[in-house]
Design a protein around this nucleic acid. Structure first.
Lengths: 209, 209
DNA sequence: GTCTATAAATTGATAGAC
DNA sequence: GTCTATCAATTTATAGAC
């Protein structure tokens, strides 16, 4: 009884903290606001997490594990290279659709000085960029894809995937006249759009000349 | 004498404020840190700008005018459509190279609730997305470019341009092993990369089948 | 475990001397 | 215009009752 209650409160706090830290950032977030969001007393935050820093660290780690997901292991499968990219793009956009504010949160906090912390989480998650670059180079040699720069490819792909989520608050009003449904449709349709673009970047020329 | 001193101090404060607000955001920035950065006394900040909010507003407006620049008027010229895109991409990446932290700053502050403020600055700057969409549709009808979705085109282009700057703190260590020179070279080379990609998105198929 | 009350620290802002 | 000293408000954190 007591046990489950404890778990429950800790969970409430954690979920509330996720919301508030994402909304306001580590500096803008207030312990009182987190307590209100959780519907509990402020001092319980300290009872369970000791300090704001510790609570933030827990939230940061949670989001980091989502932002650098197992999804990267898609590239370790033995699918066709084009299928790998398509699967990755779809899976990542699906994740972001459920957690649209993660990229802004992560990149902003990393910029403010949590880069080294982030790197730990990344390596723990098994994200291996070098392996990705080698895979691309291998496929180029085999003639399966065009001779692209792997670093450009990564940045292009992640930019096409992530940027719409980061810039949503802006283009929602600037391009979509505040029509949130239209934006949701737009973002869902990005899965196909980005897949097509990346495939076109990779597909060898139909050597016709 | 007094006049030029005054201008000078105000300028010092403003420049210091730009640095600190970009580094820490509106919440994380401290008036003391701005004063230290400017090498002047803290109370002078209030003498010249009354409050932290007012100082922030000035900085925000300054960056907004850079983030939504005259550059968009490139699309009003009578250049060939491909030249327009190339000029825009080059000009915008050049600007970002000189002010690499503007996108993160702007998008983050807009997310935290300054969207309406941003919109005012945008319309004052004459940025007109609707006109851009119409231009694209016109060129499609003329058969000069492929039948692309204008909204996707904008987001693709801005993502490819802006995302590398937003994510630099991350990929600098993750992809470039902290080699800052390599990153600078990479970003400079993006002008050609993005131009090529956008042109490929727009160039009509060599209808061979 | 949860609450109230309060301490302790931080920080934006002002008063007033020069 | 610029400085020192200080206030007032906010906010994190703790003590202690239940």
């Amino acid at each position: 009884m007591k046990k489950s209650d404890k778990e429950n409160t800790e969970e409430k706090i954690f979920n509330a903290a996720k919301k508030v830290f994402v909304r306001k950032g580590s500096d803008g977030a207030r312990m009182q606001e987190i307590a209100d969001e959780a519907g509990i007393n402020k001092s319980l935050l300290h009872y369970y997490y000791r300090s704001k820093d510790k609570l933030f660290a827990a939230v940061f780690e949670f989001f980091a594990s989502k932002f650098f997901p197992d999804i990267f292991n898609i590239f370790n499968s033995d699918d066709d290279i084009f299928i790998k990219f398509e699967k990755f793009i779809h899976a990542y956009i699906d994740m972001l659709s459920k957690n649209p504010f993660i990229p802004m949160f992560m990149l902003n906090e990393i910029k403010k000085g949590n880069a080294s912390f982030a790197i730990k989480v990344i390596s723990r998650a098994g994200v291996n960029i070098k392996a990705f670059e080698q895979l691309v180079e291998k496929e180029i040699k085999k003639g399966n894809i065009k001779n692209v720069n792997p670093k450009n490819l990564i940045i292009n792909m992640l930019g096409l995937i992530i940027f719409p989520f980061i810039s949503r608050p802006l283009f929602e009003v600037l391009i979509f006249d505040n029509n949130k449904n239209a934006v949701d449709e737009f973002l869902a349709q990005r899965k196909e759009e980005v897949s097509t673009l990346i495939i076109n970047m990779l597909k060898p020329e139909k050597t016709l000349n």
